[in-house]
Design a binder for these strands. Structure first.
Lengths: 160, 160
DNA sequence: ACGCTATTGCGCTCAACTCGCATCTAAGGC
DNA sequence: GCCTTAGATGCGAGTTGAGCGCAATAGCGT
């Protein structure tokens, strides 16, 4: 499916609230409901946090050891094309993946790597200002916003 | 110098407005004013935009072909420790480096990779809100904020 | 000029992906 | 149920961006 499924129409992936929903969508697009696909999706639905490709591969392989990590990567790509999955970059580490329905922005501490989930409404103001002044539509979910958590700010003040 | 120079005191690197200024700072910290260092710094001062390590290495090697890219990486690290240089991540590509004095935030279009320089004052509001509500101090320079430029928004509306 | 040690060149290693390709297997048609 | 065929997979090799170890080199205080 890596190629066959078209990017067009990725957004209206609509309400997919179960593995079977997603597989139905996959088949509607000419894709196939393979075991691998099912196991990978199940792991994504079971995870209640974002996972790196490697973490996801481990979870998948605990149920089906022969599913190769490259298959995980390809499926994640496909699911992103369908709008079912999104990935985020939290600082310098590997990308993390999660169901699109669970997507949210993050703040990441540059010192201790603590990640803080960001309520979407925080970006209302910046979003509007940037749109007005630059015509740019921000997507705060894809890349985390870095900075210092309160503990590390305090530590920095204390030491310097 | 990669180890010898301490991270402590990186901030008060002060006004360094020339290659010689930086080299003086380096020597004050126990570092040495090598040819490599001088050429690399000169390339950074000459560049009026941020460069990837590879671009910088090319610029450097056009003047001194034997300077190895790993030397470029090490010097960039050292200069960051001194607070003279900062790096930014613009989307998925390699990091870009520039003089700390020229640092600024970026917006990056996810579709066409256009980068838009962001006036610092844009983040005043978000910065204050996030500090108040989460105690988090944002650093919008280190990682770009992604989204869609106006042209790609229009294209997206037209096609979908 | 001398010696100490910061730096460098080079090549190897690493992480996170990405690709080519032979093989396998869903799904629709008969 | 069997066949066909094109989508998917497993596996290994390749790629990119970056970091590391080490022996050789070269600043710089004396």
């Amino acid at each position: 499916m890596s190629k066959p499924i078209s990017l067009a129409g990725a957004r209206p992936s609509g309400r997919v609230s179960s593995v079977d929903d997603v597989l139905a969508l996959v088949r509607a697009r000419g894709g196939r409901a393979t075991i691998s696909r099912r196991v990978i999706l199940q792991a994504l639905f079971d995870a209640h946090r974002h996972l790196t490709a490697e973490e996801l591969a481990e979870a998948v392989q605990s149920r089906a050891p022969d599913i190769h990590i490259s298959t995980v990567y390809r499926n994640l790509d496909d699911m992103q094309r369908l709008g079912v999955v999104v990935h985020s970059h939290l600082g310098h580490g590997p990308a993390t993946y999660q169901l699109a329905s669970a997507a949210h922005a993050h703040f990441l501490c540059e010192v201790c790597d603590a990640t803080i989930d960001a309520p979407d409404d925080l970006f209302k103001g910046l979003s509007k200002t940037v749109m007005t002044r630059l015509g740019f539509s921000i997507d705060p979910i894809h890349f985390a916003i870095l900075g210092l958590c309160s503990a590390c700010q305090a530590a920095a003040r204390a030491s310097g």
